[in-house]
Design a protein around this nucleic acid. Sequence first.
DNA 1: CATGAATGAGTGTTCATTCAT
DNA 2: AATGAATGAACACTCATTCAT
Lengths: 193, 193, 193, 193
Amino acid sequence: MATAAAGKENQILQAGLILFAERGFDATAVPAIAEKAGVGAGTIYRYFENKETLGNVLFQQCLGRFEQTLRSGYPADSENSREQFQHFFYGMVSFTNENEHALCFIRNHAHAHFLSEKSTNQFVQALSGLHEFFEKGKTKQIIRNLPANGLIAIFFGSFMELHRLIRAGHLEETPELMKGIEASCWDAVRIHD
Amino acid sequence: MATAAAGKENQILQAGLILFAERGFDATAVPAIAEKAGVGAGTIYRYFENKETLGNVLFQQCLGRFEQTLRSGYPADSENSREQFQHFFYGMVSFTNENEHALCFIRNHAHAHFLSEKSTNQFVQALSGLHEFFEKGKTKQIIRNLPANGLIAIFFGSFMELHRLIRAGHLEETPELMKGIEASCWDAVRIHD
Amino acid sequence: MATAAAGKENQILQAGLILFAERGFDATAVPAIAEKAGVGAGTIYRYFENKETLGNVLFQQCLGRFEQTLRSGYPADSENSREQFQHFFYGMVSFTNENEHALCFIRNHAHAHFLSEKSTNQFVQALSGLHEFFEKGKTKQIIRNLPANGLIAIFFGSFMELHRLIRAGHLEETPELMKGIEASCWDAVRIHD
Amino acid sequence: MATAAAGKENQILQAGLILFAERGFDATAVPAIAEKAGVGAGTIYRYFENKETLGNVLFQQCLGRFEQTLRSGYPADSENSREQFQHFFYGMVSFTNENEHALCFIRNHAHAHFLSEKSTNQFVQALSGLHEFFEKGKTKQIIRNLPANGLIAIFFGSFMELHRLIRAGHLEETPELMKGIEASCWDAVRIHD
DNA sequence: CATGAATGAGTGTTCATTCAT
DNA sequence: AATGAATGAACACTCATTCAT
């Protein structure tokens, strides 16, 4: 079967993602990943040089998918900043729903010791769309005059924390709630008359 | 000597806090804590049952101090919600400045595997002042009609992420910046006319 | 194809010899042998039961070739012991030159843990010509009255150590040097008037 | 007990020496050393950075003792070269008797992959007395005109091989035998009239 | 026949924890 | 009370060997 090999690699990546997201990188044993992936412990080392490499591949893969989600369908030419912001917001929502552990993993390991420079750069890269949006918005006097990475932090930090609450069951993800949160985030970053 | 013992305990707590904040709980070795604390490795086990206990004590202590900071001087009777909000905001700011590693540690371990139920509850408890503030504000039609823990998440998440940027040197903590951030956070949670 | 199979077996033997000689048996991985031999790792197990067997086959083969070299052209009927000794000496010299890694491998693994009894016996067997020569020489009062295996040890030990020096580049193999060494070895084992 | 700590280190060194000498460095597992030494596996790492370090410490220690044996009581001022040579020979004999596994270990690992440069230098250093002796002997026209390291190889190689035979029980170490071997080695390196 | 992906026992090493001092 | 040497279970990782293809 041609998919067998790729299958194993994916099983390892998936198992690693779940365990890293749930327990953290340092608290996850390689044999535990192997067991969850349904492969032998040695098999992991056929696909990844070591545990750190697996962590970095996973990190970059998640960020790549995240960036993809934010970019695809972005109304770049629109003059409606709010519409663009909503694209980002609901893009992130759908990303979290489609990639159950990805954002959790990214969030908890965004500044972890095992990350390579490439991984760190990927993080900046993934948010470059938002960065650009905020910069443009500031020149158009629509977005608050704060450093763009600060604005990203406000938006991203809020979102992450809310995401956790929802995942933990402390908040129910209803359309109304999401609408309220989106409005809140928007009001946090925009200029008010 | 009673103070000597208390001194050792504090040295251990301080060393543990710094290392847990900088490297993470799992990546920190107990002997490393002992060395930084200037005590023998075995001494740690005279004051704390095990590494997890030390982690939990530290977590609860930090949150206790955090809660204290938010509570002390709170203008509970004021009718000016904005003033109350500013108290929270600048309380958090001064807390981070006075407790260099505390918020970092809390942030990175807020949902760690080693936390006891008591620690988790302490987290909720520490934010209960904010919770109350938001609930009252909602009845007064000043605060957005979102679940209080959601509002906390927005405020706290933003603040944490910004704190990281500042600590990493990517953002400079100037009075203007803090004023801008405070306004942003306020606009995120309040109702706009 | 019969030759193809034999070809593979020889490739494996050759690769194994080189790596065992250079790195040692224990420090050589089977997949490394496979790679050097240009065959799949599994193929090795088609020709050899396991790594130990490969080591033993190699050991015996090298010793067999060594014995062959010493035997062929030996002036058995000569009354000139020195001439016979020179045959052994220069036979060993030419063997080392024609079998770059064989003596190295033999030397470093002459008493290795993986050797079977048969391999050990082969070692004695390979030197039986020398043994006989020394025994005869002793009865003829030409060779020193020491146990034959002791005389072999003196001759063989010297030769091996010199061989290493030459291979390591610490000594240059010139005809004069070889002549001097031969004389030295001969003086070590013969009776002096 | 003051000797307890030093005792452990010595137990580890002794156990390591025996196992490395008998089985070889690569074929010896660290837990096996620990077991033979009667200590926990982790204890080895309190005294030695890693297995390689243990190997190098052992190598240097053995060579140090060897050099000491050769140096102590050496009749440096004697004009009698034969007497000096006998000092070396019987020094080596007594060294092998007093340090059962040391020479075996040195011999089998004299060019092993794990040796540091310092260890390699120590090897040269340990034989520097012999080197000097041979060089002086050559100028005095007593020693054969061969490179000194070649002469060392002849002497050392013979001795090593004989040592193995004796240790394996294939040769009995009697005074007569040793006298004969000494004479043989001397005749190997000296100039004959 | 030949392969090389897959395995898991075994390796060297770390570290939370204990305990004799 | 305080220590830190000692421990051994658990870790990340390797490699001889197997077997489906």
